[in-house]
Design a protein around this nucleic acid. Structure first.
Length: 259
DNA sequence: AATTCTCGCAACCGCGGCGCA
DNA sequence: GTGCGCCGCGGTTGCGAGAAT
């Protein structure tokens, strides 16, 4: 039954890695490639558990890592992605070449949180801090805003789901949707389709192709209404929408990849 | 110069999903 | 079908460096 334990914790080193350990790990992975972290430490002559080796390699030793300060563009991209994905650091890291989930997580906690607070934005909800009391009151009285996977009929036929953000009290009146990730499945929301150009454009701005969000980037089911936030993160254009007060283009979930 | 405080980052821990036996 | 281990992820901790007193 099952497999043997990944490592004997009693005979493994912990704490900071030494130069010699780093060299051994690098040399081994250069020779044999990544993978099979369970057997790697023994094979490489390291007194570490596989988990520790993997972490050290991914977060520090990988040759493609971009060391150094985050750029302003990276900052803004992280903020946008976090507002959409929440604390899904690995997904966010997947959109920032050379950055690791751990690095982004640390950077968020030390720099970006403060940056958002100084802008008057709640880093947890991405809403204006001034809105919070009113919003909290609304949530208490009418329930939290909800992201729904609400397929339209034709999308149902194609097995496509769209993510929509709605406020249970006023489904279409909020310009910056609450990104409470409390999820629910709901039937198609036809009211919005009948709501005229303005409502339609808001609806489009809030819709994410669920197939893409699930990593089915090349799926035929992918018909994401939001395209290429990240590809155009540096160049806010007239076609972008005002997301969190940051003029931007929609996010292309097609390119969101797991590491 | 010595001590205390604050901050940033590397590493660890625990959990959930998945696959193997 | 079930149990167990591996892998990957997010949250948390601990330590070292620099700033402040």
């Amino acid at each position: 039954m099952g497999r043997s334990p990944c490592c004997e914790k009693a005979h493994t080193n912990k704490g900071a890695w030494t130069k010699e350990e780093d060299d051994r790990l690098i040399a081994y992975i250069r020779a044999h490639g990544e993978g099979c972290w369970r057997s790697l430490p023994k094979a490489a002559g390291l007194l570490r558990c596989g988990k520790s080796c993997r972490l050290r390699w991914i977060n520090y030793l990988r040759p493609d890592l971009k060391r150094g300060n985050f750029t302003e563009e990276e900052d803004e991209l992280i903020i946008k992605l976090h507002s959409l994905l929440g604390n899904k650091w690995s997904l966010i890291a997947g959109r920032l070449p050379g950055r690791t989930d751990n690095e982004i997580k640390n950077y968020w906690n030390t720099h970006i949180r403060r940056k958002l607070l100084s802008r008057g934005i709640d880093p947890a909800t991405h809403r204006s801090l001034n809105d919070s009391p009113r919003h909290n009151q609304a949530q208490e009285s009418a329930g939290a805003a909800t992201i729904c996977f609400a397929p339209k009929q034709e999308e149902k036929d194609n097995n496509v789901l769209f993510v929509e953000v709605k406020d249970s009290k006023s489904p279409t009146s909020e310009r910056c949707p609450d990104l409470n990730l409390e999820l629910s499945i709901s039937p198609p929301h036809h009211e919005r389709e009948e709501g005229g150009d303005e409502e339609e454009s808001k609806s489009i701005g809030r819709s994410l192709c669920f197939a893409c969000s699930l990593g089915l980037q090349n799926s035929k089911d992918c018909s994401c209404a939001l395209n290429a936030i990240t590809a155009n993160a540096n160049a806010s254009s007239a076609t972008g929408f005002d997301f969190l007060g940051l003029k931007t283009n929609p996010l292309d979930y097609r390119t969101l990849q797991m590491k």
